[in-house]
């Protein structure tokens, strides 16, 4: 007797079809937003890893372009060791930012330079201050953005490079900017990336495309710092389980060999 009879095979197919249908219902942006193009990323797939050179450049883009408005609250400076920065380099990066600490012995709060164990310093002390400085719109924290949108990295990249001229006759409201990929097309964030906006430490030409790719690689790492460990461990675990399943199944067949069933 086969493992799966006709009826049960139908059940399996129906089940997977169901899952696919239900999942695809995590549908895309409402409005006239274009769907982001599918891009190939270094971190994609079972064997995907972080492109560290790109992520280091992405950190530079974040610090020089984005950090003026966007926080990265969940990442600590010491985490940058994952991207290949030395302890000394991290101390230097951190010390460029001030953290409110205290109270001291006089009961007062005071400012001090950040140390590696601190989280990335936010540009604004709270959401209200952020909105006040940005026409009422709150620049979201960037740590999890790659995981927070359907389309993930593809979407963020598309958004950053999607500041195109609006179609003829489109009226762009005051304080908004036209973006081909944003839901509803009118985004509060002005175009952040421009040719040569950043001078890369490693000399890579800073095209908009390059900066977008680099910052997305960095943001992907920021969103999922455990990714490489997860995939590495996963490979071993799944192989182990496949072998274990095979052994147990063989054992079952052997044990049941003389049972009429």
């Amino acid at each position: 007797m086969g493992i799966v009879s006709n009826m049960r095979r139908t059940a399996a197919v129906a089940g997977f079809a169901a899952l696919a249908a239900v999942m695809s219902s995590a549908a895309f942006a409402a409005g006239d937003a274009k769907a982001p193009e599918d891009r190939d990323w270094h971190f994609e797939g079972i064997f995907g890893t972080v492109d560290r050179a790109s992520a280091q450049r992405g950190l530079q883009v974040y610090l020089e372009v984005c950090a003026g408005c966007h926080s990265l609250k969940q990442v600590a400076y010491r985490n940058l060791a994952d991207l290949g920065f030395t302890e000394a380099e991290i101390k230097v990066i951190a010390s460029g930012f001030d953290v409110t600490d205290g109270p001291n012995d006089e009961g007062e709060m005071f400012e001090r330079p950040a140390i590696p164990s601190d989280r990335f310093v936010s540009p604004f002390p709270n959401e209200e201050a952020a909105k006040a400085a940005n026409n009422g719109a709150n620049p979201p924290d960037l740590t999890l953005q790659v995981k927070a949108h359907p389309g993930g990295a593809d979407y963020i990249h598309a958004l950053l490079t999607g500041y195109v001229d609006p179609p003829a006759g489109t009226e762009v409201p005051e304080g908004s900017n036209y973006n081909a990929y944003f839901a509803g097309n009118f985004i509060a964030m002005p175009q952040p990336l421009f040719e040569d906006g950043v001078e890369y430490a490693d000399g890579t030409p800073a095209t908009i495309e390059q900066m977008a790719t680099d910052v997305v690689n960095f943001m992907q790492w920021a969103a999922e710092p455990e990714m490489e460990q997860r995939k590495k461990t996963g490979f071993k675990v799944v192989i182990f389980l496949i072998i274990l399943s095979a052994i147990l199944y063989a054992g079952k067949r052997k044990m049941w060999a003389n049972v009429d069933h």
Partner: peptide, 27 residues
């Protein structure tokens, strides 16, 4: 045997597609 097979599928999702069933907006 059946449990091992089930856990294998489970492990695949946990390690390689952990957010497949989830809603991105919850991040």
């Amino acid at each position: 045997a059946g449990l091992a097979i089930f856990v294998t599928v489970f492990a695949f999702f946990v390690f390689f597609a952990p957010n497949f069933f989830g809603e991105p907006e919850n991040y």
